[in-house]
Amino acid sequence: MEIRLKGISHSYRDGGLKVLSDINLSIREGEIVCLIGPSGCGKSTLLRIIGGLELPSAGAVLQVGDPPPTSLNPLTYVFQDFALLPWRTVEGNISLALEDHPIGRKMRNEIIDGVLARTNLTEFRKAYPRQLSGGMKQRVAIARALSVNPAVMLMDEPLSALDSQIREILMADLIELWCRENFTAFYVTHNLAEAVRLGHRVAVLSRRPGRIREIIEIETPLDQRSADSPELGRHQQHLWEMLRDEARAADLELANV
């Protein structure tokens, strides 16, 4: 399944503040598209629009082709703040996503076993979120997203709430997961290093009203990218040059809103 964005524009308060302007983009099956942009440029809004949590003022999000029949929730989010229920254990949190689907208890347990194994969480099955570190919580959220077998994962700065060491480890985990399963993802971030490590393509959004300035393609396969490779460094430098002025302007703009 492919997701195609056609002429998405969005403004808050009926034609007031315009946040997105004429976004055209497609997310092809099996690729990770990263979206970067200065803060307040509408990245998260765009993500909410893609998943159907918000309606755009103009344009449409199109689903090209059908999701695989085994997919319980084709468009599935991973949130920056994990969004785990504190009153449920790891297992219960994953179960929440499955309980409203007509699958038996046995099938549900099998799915939970499977995703816990794939995210190396099996021994934390009965733990409550408060007992887990930030990195572990985000692993649980990723396990929950995987449990519904999504066609496209919508990731909203999933590593931004974590410290840099854990971020590096989880990034490696995500790369490994992608190499095994070739999942499709739309990955919003403000971290350029993350974008060039994880993205097959990186789209750069301008400051508000956000429009796509450029989409760069990174040829190196995900598992051959290392933090110090000169090619990634060049891409990152190029992205930074593009973003720097936008970020600076956005910074000043916010001051006189």
């Binding site: 929730n73 229920l85 009153w87 929440l96 929950r144």
Partner: peptide
């Protein structure tokens, strides 16, 4: 609210959201 939005994004039904998120959260 982020928990409610999360549940909606997973397609959890209204009554499940009330029973599994709103009531325990208000407890």
């Amino acid at each position: 609210r982020t928990l409610i939005r999360m549940a909606q994004s997973f397609g959890v039904s209204w009554s499940s959201i009330v029973r599994k998120i709103i009531i325990p959260g208000a407890m």
